[in-house]
């Protein structure tokens, strides 16, 4: 492992009296693809959202792309430009066209003028196979298409890290493949990625490392073939027996 891109040490997160994350340690290297699996409510989404501070961190340290996210003086908007995020429910902006969704950040953050941003948007749409939908409204797209647009949008600021929170869970089964294909191409391109997923087959195929979370801690982690083929912990075995 070369450069450490994400460094999480002793991360705690609680909502009121509900301790959701109870001391997470996790280092992710540049170009590494990490899949996070685990039972519902184990804190997978919360962990992901702590990485770009969509959740305030209760204690511990999170360093992303060289930025200490827990430092109150850090410009979190700057950090977020280095981290793309894809949500389960797409969260496309319904009042903008597909291209405008993608152009919003580059234009508003003055990274590009509108012409450049549009060219970049079309390029990204081409990459996810949706160039012809540039001027469509998100509402006219299928679920799979929406998620591909959301991925293109997350890529617009050319982030070095991509976070996916169950990107295929809200999709009809026949659309899962097209989205996984896009994610896989991203993984192959060398992007550092953290994916929360229920798609065990996909995790096995794409991940460099699989992290199994339970009850707010990392219970077990390892190469996909080890974790899926020969889980050490009883909890992991139990979980895998239910989902595989």
């Amino acid at each position: 492992m070369s450069n450490v891109k994400i460094q999480v040490s002793d991360l705690h997160k609680s909502f009121g009296s509900n301790n959701v994350l109870k001391g997470i340690d996790l280092d992710i290297a540049e170009g590494e693809v990490v899949c996070v699996i685990g039972p519902s409510g184990s804190g997978k989404s919360t962990l992901l959202r702590c990485l770009n501070k969509l959740e305030d961190i209760t204690s511990g340290k999170v360093v992303v792309d060289g930025f200490d996210v827990t430092d109150p003086k850090v410009d979190i908007n700057e950090v977020r430009r280095h981290v793309g995020m894809v949500f389960q429910h797409f969260n496309l902006f319904p009042h903008m066209s597909v291209a405008e969704n993608i152009m919003l950040a580059p234009v508003e953050l003055k990274k590009m003028n509108r012409t450049e941003a549009r060219a970049k948007a079309l390029e990204l749409l081409e990459r996810v196979g949706l160039k012809e939908k540039a001027d469509a409204r998100p509402s006219s797209l299928s679920g799979g298409q929406k998620q591909r647009v959301a991925i293109a949008r997350a890529l617009a600021m050319a982030p070095g890290i991509m976070l996916f929170d169950e990107a295929t869970s809200a999709l009809d089964p026949e659309m899962v493949g097209e989205v996984l294909q896009v994610i896989k191409e991203l993984a192959d391109s060398g992007m550092t990625m953290v994916l929360v997923t229920h798609e065990m087959g996909f995790a096995r195929e794409v991940a460099d490392r699989v992290v199994f979370m339970a009850d707010g801690v990392v219970c077990e982690q390892g190469k996909p073939e080890d974790l899926f083929g020969n889980p050490q912990q009883a909890r992991t075995q139990d979980f895998l027996s239910k989902v595989l």
Binding site: N52, N77, R80, G84, F87, N91, L104, A150
Partner: peptide, 18 residues
């Protein structure tokens, strides 16, 4: 408005006001 809209925008690096 779905809170996911604000989250999506914030996750792109846009400030609260923007």
């Amino acid at each position: 408005v779905d809170p996911g809209q604000l989250e999506a925008s914030r996750s792109l690096g846009l400030g609260y006001g923007k």
